[in-house]
Amino acid sequence: MCGRYANTKSGEELGAYFEADEVDAVAMPPSWNIAPTQQVPIVVDRVPKDDPDGMPSRLVTAARWSLVPRWATELASKYPTFNARSETVTEKATFKNAVVRSRAILPADGYYEWHTVDGPSGKPVKTPHWITDPVEGELAFAGLYSWWRPPVAEGAEPEPWVLTATMLTRAAHGPAASIHDRAPVMLLREAWDTWIDPTVEGDAALVDMVVAESETVLERLELHAVAPLRGDGPHLIEPV
């Protein structure tokens, strides 16, 4: 799983890196300690509303990190939806519709994972690690998105739509497997276009493809132990 990560790049920087056509005018402050339900940057491709056969355009925008399907009656979920297991994502009601045409990239400088061992007293001791890609310097997590708003009562004004997102996870591989058994699915640059293209109908085969390709990124990751995550700032990624 991945429950904490960092993004310190502005929307404009992400737009240039991911070759976006547009960057939404939304606040994307740098954070070294992004947590579920917070706003995070995402990259999506969209088909023009007035031209369904037109070329998709790429947008950098912000979404709530924890996907809420359109049919849900509440924004808060009884179970975590900030991660979606790649092995079952096409089967789970919460995620399967988004796989078809609502796929996204969640950009990150890096992410955190905790290594758990038994301490001297027998209680588990968890040590956070900072994990990055030394080749690209940027991670592109395979994600999904969904628009949601509360059900509209008769005679009431509808509330605004909320954009929500999740990231796919897989069995860990490479250096990060030494500390945890799960890892985010990380897209190769060559896979960006296909993954977020809304004209490509997503299915289990597409998910399996990006999962398999992600091993290239997983094999080159670097990691080091860091202090317990408290607050926010660049000090959180300093090695201990």
Rank of each mutant, 00 (worst) to 15 (best):
I42C: 07
E74W: 09
V89F: 13
N83W: 09
P48I: 01
P52I: 00
K78Y: 12
L59E: 05
P80L: 00
F95L: 03
N83K: 07
D51P: 10
Y79I: 05
N33A: 10
K92S: 13
T94K: 05
S86R: 06
A62G: 07
K78M: 04
R70L: 05
E91D: 13
A63M: 06
L67R: 03
L75D: 03
Q38L: 02
A35I: 00
E87W: 12
E87C: 05
R64E: 04
L75V: 03
L67I: 03
E87T: 06
L75F: 14
Y79Q: 12
P48K: 02
S57K: 11
D50G: 15
K96L: 04
V47L: 00
P52C: 01
A84D: 09
R85F: 08
T73Q: 14
A76L: 01
P56C: 03
W71I: 00
V43W: 08
T94F: 14
D53C: 02
K96F: 03
Y79P: 04
V40G: 13
W32A: 06
S57D: 09
K49R: 11
A98G: 12
L75G: 15
T73H: 15
M55P: 14
P56I: 00
N97M: 02
F82Y: 15
R85S: 09
T61F: 08
T37K: 14
V43C: 15
V60H: 12
S77H: 15
D50H: 12
L75H: 12
D45Q: 09
V99K: 06
R85K: 13
E74S: 13
W32I: 00
V43P: 11
V47K: 02
R85L: 00
D53K: 11
R85N: 14
A84E: 03
M55G: 10
T37C: 07
A93K: 15
A35S: 12
R46C: 03
S57M: 07
A72F: 15
D50I: 00
V40A: 10
L67M: 08
V43T: 05
V44R: 08
A72R: 12
I34H: 13
W71T: 05
S66Q: 14
L75E: 10
V40C: 10
R64Q: 05
T90F: 08
T81L: 11
L75K: 11
Q39L: 08
R64M: 02
A62W: 04
W71A: 06
E74R: 14
S31A: 07
D51Y: 10
T81E: 03
A63K: 05
E74T: 15
W65F: 09
I34L: 11
V60E: 03
S31Q: 03
R58L: 00
Q38I: 00
A98M: 09
T88M: 07
V89C: 09
E91Q: 14
P52A: 02
W65Y: 11
K78D: 15
T61W: 11
V40F: 15
A84S: 11
A84K: 04
E91T: 11
W65N: 06
L59C: 04
